[in-house]
Amino acid sequence: MIHLENIHKTYYAGSPLHVLKGVDLDVADGDFVSIMGASGSGKSTLLNIVGILDNYDEGNYYLDGRLIKDLTETQSAKVRNEMIGFVFQSFNLINFKTALENVALPLYYRGVSRKKRNAIALDYLDRLGLKDWADHLPSEMSGGQKQRVAIARSIIAKPRLILADEPTGALDSTTSQEVMDILRQVNREEGITMLIVTHAREVAEQTNKIVNFKDGLISSIEDIKQL
């Protein structure tokens, strides 16, 4: 699903900061992978590049066999819409839209009619146990509920890949576990490839594979046997 070859990335804010120093990584279709590392190790940057939210300076990135390089904004928007779902630490729900409208948004950009996309969104909310909250604004919901809305939003367009940047970072341990259970369930049932950035060991251990990051390079990859 994801094939990275010698990815380099340097930020030029003040003094040049070489964040990624030649990363090679393969993630198989349907895999559930976490990336761990200290702050500033480059794990979030890597996630941004994989999500085509940021570009890279050197190397090659293939997503589902397609080289992702020098795409225009419009092209990358299309790829993101069709292939990738995002889950963020701070949820990033649009605060003036209800849960239902937030979930339905990716389908809006795909051109699905309002009636149809709202029906689908309600179905997804139902699956995540939030049917009764469909008409509520994000400000009326708890963190765990918001993250579940965000997950519903990320999977509604049936992406091939979900990228989650610290999905449990703003949640307590109980809700964290709920969210991880949902992500694992989505991975298992929908066969969607998951890539999670986290610095919580107990979160990472629930994935199939932990990629450890250090100073812009992969230091080790651990395989975890899930029971």
């Binding site: 999500g51 904004e73 419009t74 928007a77 993101r80 990033n92 649009i94 990716p106 950009y109 795909r110």
Partner: peptide, 16 residues
């Protein structure tokens, strides 16, 4: 910024 950024991440093209 956040709203527009999220829209972009969800597949809104610049023209949209």
């Amino acid at each position: 910024t956040q709203e527009i950024g999220v829209r972009r991440a969800l597949g809104a093209s610049p023209f949209t």
